[in-house]
Computed example of a mutant assay.
Amino acid sequence: MNINDYISFASANPVCYLATCEGDQPRVRTVLLFFADKTGFYFGTLSPKDMSKQLHLNPKVEVCFYNNPHNQAQAKQLRLTGTVEFVDDPKLIHRLHKERLYLDDISGRNLEPFSEIFKVSAGDVHFWSLSDVMNEENIEHLTF
């Protein structure tokens, strides 16, 4: 496997689960991948949210992408473990905001000033499927 295999899987299955820590309590929520490329896996959030506060205090995360097949025998997940970096790029933040304008409609206000982008650009990534249930020590991992 190479990083492009993981980028392709994440891009094809952008709804994922991201875990943070608040003190010693893990917190997990569903998030939407903004995009992924060779520079990292990018996500968006809003600065007032608990997730943003947790990431600023402890940038370690684990993300799980899942293909959600009809046939569970074909279930596959990608697990990504790393440390987030916040991206201060006004053009990228504007692009994120434009792609998620529905959030303005839901909240009743312009959320661009609160928008943040973070990425995981280094860490460990691997696939897991049901065939790995009793074979986890032999799963191929990629450090990127």
Rank of each mutant, 00 (worst) to 15 (best):
E22A: 13
E116P: 04
V87N: 00
D88S: 15
E112D: 03
S47I: 05
D104P: 10
K60S: 11
N67H: 00
D88Y: 10
S8P: 04
Y42S: 10
R29T: 07
Q77Y: 04
E140S: 06
R100L: 14
H56Y: 09
V120M: 02
N4A: 11
A122P: 03
E140A: 08
D5Y: 02
L103P: 11
L80M: 07
V28E: 12
E116L: 13
F118Y: 15
Y102F: 14
N71S: 07
V61I: 13
I117Q: 11
S11W: 01
E62G: 08
L130F: 09
T30W: 00
F41S: 06
I3S: 06
L101R: 14
N110L: 12
K119E: 03
S47F: 03
V63F: 10
I106H: 07
Y17G: 11
Y102S: 13
E137W: 09
I139S: 03
V133Q: 09
L32P: 01
G82R: 02
I139G: 03
V28N: 15
L80W: 08
Q72T: 11
P59F: 01
L92V: 03
S11V: 04
E137V: 08
A36R: 05
V28M: 13
A36N: 10
F41K: 04
P14Y: 10
A73T: 08
G44V: 01
L96E: 14
D132H: 05
L92W: 00
S11K: 04
I7W: 04
T81R: 12
Q54P: 05
Y42E: 09
L101W: 10
L130Q: 10
